[in-house]
Design a protein around this nucleic acid. Structure first.
Lengths: 319, 319
DNA sequence: CGATCTAGGACACGTCCTGGCCTATATGGG
DNA sequence: CCCATATAGGCCAGGACGTGTCCTAGATCG
């Protein structure tokens, strides 16, 4: 409280409250004269924070939207809410911002007080994983540890469950996290195997940043996404799904995630969807049923079988 | 950039990066001597931010978790990611932190630069509303405007669609937002009608804070939640849902949201769920089907009918 | 053992921060 | 209309404090 910088930070946090503060109240609250408050406001404006003032009787200051993000001052509950929200969305985030979302979560969790961390964990446990599917859900904690290690250029140690169920210990230099559809991959240089590898994040457990720094190697590809798609080509079983809907293409498109592709209109009130890269039939079945209109699945047989079972189960539930 | 406070904020933002910074690099980057950096670190520590230092060769500083949240310095993408994540979760947030979640969103959107606001809007449009249900989804923008007006004690103007479909104009003094299950309500004092009212947020459109301040009146109840439940008693149609599952109670509980209540075990591999306050049958049907085990619905008839249709539709889709 | 980092005391110089006082200006209410 | 109250900002005096340049001590790794 003796410092000018501390006061400015306090001021910034007060101004982020969605209300107006008269200068006199700010002065008494921060323990300085109103004149100094006016100067502090000026300082904040010089720093680029657009402090808005309303003139006249019962005027006051508030922080408006500007050119750059000001440092967000959150109270405990807000921080927990953001952390829980981001973790809930970590598995199936909106496409295009998955990486940024994980980065933000890592940044927040790095400085999250431990008592709040417990609350986040408890609430996270209470949350319902929306996709039952094949159970390949990612642990937000794993994601954030990996993201931190990648940007911090620290070596990473973890246990990896291979496709055949065997557990192996890995020591890698993490390069980047890549999200495809709803699955996460880590592109990293495997120290022991002395080569680049990709790891499915849902098969990783007990990730641990060793603290040892490394200098980034050059990836043998234009970027991590390209390397991933090259290394996955022909490797994992993917399905091609073809379905027809009895509803306008816009109606269906609005109810499907983008990465499933866009439906093509086959008439005024019908359209067709062709998904080439589906990797979980349960998930696709679930999304199709959610569209809330008549539809028919033409391919693959496994999906048709799964839908038959689901429909039968629901019918049985109805007595 | 000439100021000490500005440098401290910059330093704080650098230290939030998940990596270690040697003092010398911080010095050159911020354009001051290493000694000043050491003093700045000390200042931050005095302010309560736990700057962790590792000694020895290639040591450095980083920001650790402490007692209080430091101001979060986000880049553009991270801010957008948080905003989108919170908006996506605004409708059906994790129980217990809905209000905090909306507060955080309001705080963020208040200072979000407009160019980022456009990106948030675009991504938000691309997001899929998870619950089709009765279409009573809330607009995150409406929520944040209302939350800001309530905590900022500003009068609020909006259009309200009553139960019979009629549009009315309202001018209110917002008191609090309350979330029950997946629905949002505003408890406010209606100026024109000169009495307290509750409004369903999903029926509100074009909310607008007038800027006129008011002094809070005393609510004729212990708190907003109590007032809401009193004013809703016997008013809105709620259903009682009874369902039986052929799976252990823990299995079912883990796949149901808390506000639906807890299933009661009726055997080792069976349990029973009794929901007294369901307000949307589509939503309940959807959640029950998601549990992924055999189940049967005993009540109400409307839900059974809905399930019958859903099951038939899925079966038809399977050809 | 030496290199390299953090940690921090001492000192001197100059800057800038503060409070008090002034005026100008915008706004709303009696 | 006029007055109260708010922001906005200039000017000035005095003193606090931030700065760079020394210095030494302690920790850690190769």
């Amino acid at each position: 409280m003796t410092d000018t910088p501390a006061r400015l930070l306090n001021l910034l946090s007060l101004l982020q409250t969605p209300r107006e503060w008269p200068g006199s109240e700010l002065a008494t609250r921060l323990g300085v004269s109103p004149r100094t408050i006016r100067r502090d406001i000026e300082r904040l404006r010089d720093l680029g924070y657009p402090v808005q003032a309303t003139m006249g009787a019962d005027g006051g200051y508030r922080l408006a939207a500007g050119a750059a993000m000001p440092p967000l001052v959150l109270d405990d509950e807000e921080a927990v809410a953001i952390a829980v929200g981001l973790r809930a969305g970590a598995g199936h985030a909106v496409e295009g911002i998955e990486e940024a979302s994980v980065r933000a979560l890592a940044k927040l969790e790095q400085v999250l007080p431990s008592r709040l961390r417990h609350r986040v964990g408890a609430l996270q446990a209470a949350t319902v994983p929306l996709v039952g599917g094949d159970g390949a859900s990612v642990d937000p904690h794993t994601l954030t540890v990996m993201a931190s290690a990648a940007t911090g250029q620290e070596r990473l140690r973890f246990a990896y469950r291979k496709g055949d169920g065997e557990e192996t210990k890995r020591l890698v230099e993490p390069h980047r996290l890549v999200s495809t559809g709803r699955r996460w991959y880590l592109v990293a240089y495997d120290i022991d195997r002395d080569d680049w590898r990709t790891f499915r994040v849902d098969r990783v457990s007990e990730p641990f940043a060793t603290g040892a720094r490394f200098t980034p190697r050059e990836l043998p590809a234009a970027d991590a996404a390209e390397y991933l798609s090259r290394s996955m080509a022909g490797l994992q079983p993917t399905y091609r799904v073809v379905a027809a809907f009895e509803a306008p293409a816009e109606f269906v498109a609005a109810r499907l995630p983008r990465w499933l592709g866009m439906p093509v209109a086959t008439g005024d009130t019908s359209c067709r969807l062709d998904v080439t890269t589906a990797d979980s039939l349960e998930w696709v079945a679930f999304r199709l049923a959610l569209v809330d209109c008549e539809f028919a699945v033409h391919e693959p047989p496994a999906l048709i079988e799964h839908l038959r079972e689901l429909g039968a189960r629901i019918s049985r539930a109805a007595g």
